[in-house]
């Protein structure tokens, strides 16, 4: 489908996608509950910082307020930068359901993306109480000021979603080569939990690991947008990191295209 046609179809894709997301209310709620790890980490780190703040190698002090701001922001970013395309693609390749997408004049990857984005309003609704809780806990003074910071945060958030989605697509495409790539996704997620800043703020990593993590993709899925919103990064200082993040977006985009094109010729369209 042409870009113009895709843009014209997008409102309907998003509206129908939203209807689907709302149809799966119980599933959605369970999924949201499964992403509450930041609350657990918040409780753990707050108790650690209760006696005295945790001192990072950089000299930054993480007290209870900093941990609260960090992990509540982490929860919000995780909700907004999520994708489940890898699982969908695996299922559809194995059962042949991908056939029905391939028959339509709309690139299936665009359709997966639209379905993921369509769930955002529901996720934002889940985030609102957490945002309110954050404001109550750390005060409105913690809300970042300055258009540049918000601009940098939005760029980082969009980059985070794109990395998450494209990584899902790349791993989903692997199922065209190896029947099932769900285990690959699990390996990706294991690395994501450790290196993204989801469980531990990256600034608390040892120096050598922190430097290494800057070159890995996971840090850009959570850490960078969270640090920008919780004022742990200055917008100007974050520019090189934004550059690396968007380089990952580009690289994963190209890889996804390549894997899709190569994988599709192997599609067996099982069933029917």
């Amino acid at each position: 489908m042409s870009l113009k046609g895709t843009v014209r179809a997008m409102p309907t894709l998003l509206r129908v996608g939203f209807s689907e997301a709302v149809a799966y209310r119980a599933e959605m709620l369970i999924w949201v509950l499964s992403t509450t790890m930041p609350f657990v980490m918040l409780a753990l780190w707050s108790s650690v910082a209760h006696e005295q703040p945790v001192l990072a190698e950089s000299g930054r002090r993480f007290g209870e307020a900093e941990f609260t701001a960090y992990f509540l922001t982490t929860f919000v970013v995780r909700q907004l930068a999520s994708s489940w395309a890898a699982w969908e693609m695996n299922y559809e390749v194995r059962t042949g359901a991908l056939s029905m997408r391939l028959l339509r004049p709309l690139h299936p990857l665009v359709a997966y993306g639209a379905e993921n984005i369509a769930a955002l309003p529901m996720r934002i609704a889940v985030c609102l109480p957490v945002v309110a809780l954050s404001l109550w806990a750390v005060g409105t003074s913690a809300v970042p000021r300055g258009g540049l910071r918000w601009l940098a945060f939005l760029a980082a958030l969009l980059g985070a979603w794109l990395i998450t989605f494209l990584a899902n697509v790349c791993i989903g495409c692997l199922s065209l080569f190896m029947q099932s790539s769900v285990k690959v996704m699990e390996v990706w997620l294991a690395a994501y939990f450790v290196f993204s800043g989801y469980l531990i703020p990256i600034e608390l990593f040892p120096g050598w690991l922190r430097q290494a993590v800057d070159f890995l993709p996971w840090r850009y899925q959570i850490g960078l947008p969270v640090e920008l919103l919780s004022s742990m990064q200055e917008p100007a200082g974050a520019l090189p990191l934004l550059g690396v993040q968007w380089a990952y977006v580009l690289g994963l985009g190209l890889l996804a295209q390549l894997l899709w094109r190569k994988g599709l010729s192997r599609f067996a369209a099982y069933g029917g």
Partner: peptide, 28 residues
């Protein structure tokens, strides 16, 4: 169009009218 008796394009949890509307948009 390929219609397969054992595969469906209708969205499972939504009324068929939603799939019709989706196809209208996709096929322009």
């Amino acid at each position: 169009m390929l219609v397969m008796g054992q595969k469906q394009q209708l969205l499972w949890d939504l009324p068929p009218a939603e799939t019709f509307e989706l196809n209208r948009a996709i096929y322009d």
